Simulated assay, not measured.
Amino acid sequence: MTEGRRYSIRGRVQGVYFRAATREQALALGLVGQARNCPDGRVEAQAWGEASALDALGRWLWQGPPMARVEEVREAPAEGPAPEGFRIA
């Protein structure tokens, strides 16, 4: 069953390839969605797919790409229909 989740990631997550790495990881897990930078320095990601793949993405977000320093990952249900592909905004 497909479900959606929204992730809010805080720390040193902008300017370190975080959105693109999130896209690569999500696609490798068979997920669709998007990732965007927020004005307050966070990265927000939304993903849709199987629960086990969403769990794996959530675990990966705590690490991120090598230059990232993740301090917090918050997770909540994502609303709306699943998009096609994975977009970086």
Rank of each mutant, 00 (worst) to 15 (best):
R87D: 05
E75D: 14
P65N: 06
E84L: 13
C38D: 14
D55T: 12
A26G: 09
L54F: 06
E24H: 06
A35S: 10
G85K: 03
Q14T: 01
L54Y: 03
N37S: 00
W60F: 04
V16Y: 01
A53D: 05
V13K: 00
D55P: 04
R42H: 02
P65L: 10
F86Q: 01
G30Y: 05
E75S: 13
G49K: 10
P83H: 09
E44I: 11
E24G: 08
W62T: 15
G33H: 08
L61P: 08
Q25W: 14
V32I: 07
G49I: 10
Y17H: 07
A78G: 09
G85I: 10
R12E: 11
F18V: 03
Q46C: 11
V32E: 07
E84W: 11
P83I: 09
P39E: 14
G80P: 02
E24Y: 05
E79Y: 02
G64Y: 08
E84S: 14
P77D: 11
L31V: 13
Q25S: 14
G85R: 06
R10S: 10
E72Y: 05
A45S: 03
R12N: 06
P65A: 08
L29F: 09
P81F: 13
A20G: 09
F86S: 01
T22A: 10
R12T: 13
F18I: 06
W48Q: 13
A35R: 07
G58H: 06
R42C: 04
Q63P: 03
T22H: 01
V43F: 04
Q63G: 03
Y17K: 00
L57A: 01
A35T: 08
